[in-house]
């Protein structure tokens, strides 16, 4: 199950603090999911999520596991709508089918998946 398309890491990397404006951020990333007012400054949130569920049905005893990961990007703007900071986390490509006894947080597995997603490792 997914909500929103995964965020383009390459588009996010093209944003330059103290140069990119809010208008340019919206042109590249689209409409934000949320806008938060921070005094005279503001922050835009972009997000997407992906979840995978697996189950073992033995009728009397059943087991289920759900793994959900999100892409999150927060863009912070000053009072003149110029980008000052940007934070990004990419997780939708790490979602996996797993049963309750399986570890879904293995660093090696995450690193392999990161390498396959353009822009996440700075390529």
């Amino acid at each position: 199950m997914e909500s929103n398309d995964p965020i383009s890491a390459e588009a996010v990397r093209s944003l330059v603090p103290w140069r990119t404006t809010a208008r340019e951020v919206v042109e590249k990333l689209g409409a934000p999911t949320e806008v938060v007012q921070l005094g005279r400054r503001s922050a835009y949130r972009y997000d997407a999520s992906s979840s995978k569920s697996a189950g073992l049905v033995l009728f009397v005893f059943n087991m289920f596991a759900q793994d959900m990961r999100t892409d999150r990007v927060w863009a912070f703007f000053d009072a003149n709508d110029v980008l000052t900071h940007i934070g990004a986390t990419y997780g939708t490509h790490r979602t996996q089918y797993a049963l309750p006894w399986e570890d879904v947080h293995e660093a090696d597995d995450d690193a392999l998946r990161d390498a396959k997603r353009p822009g996440v490792l700075g390529k």
């Binding site: 009397v60 005893f61 087991m63 596991a65 759900q66 959900m68 990961r69 309750p100 947080h105």
Partner: peptide, 14 residues
């Protein structure tokens, strides 16, 4: 009839 279910849920990394 008796049924038992065990469910785990993960969301993002700690």
């Amino acid at each position: 009839c008796m049924q038992a279910a065990y469910t785990v849920r993960y969301e993002d990394n700690p």
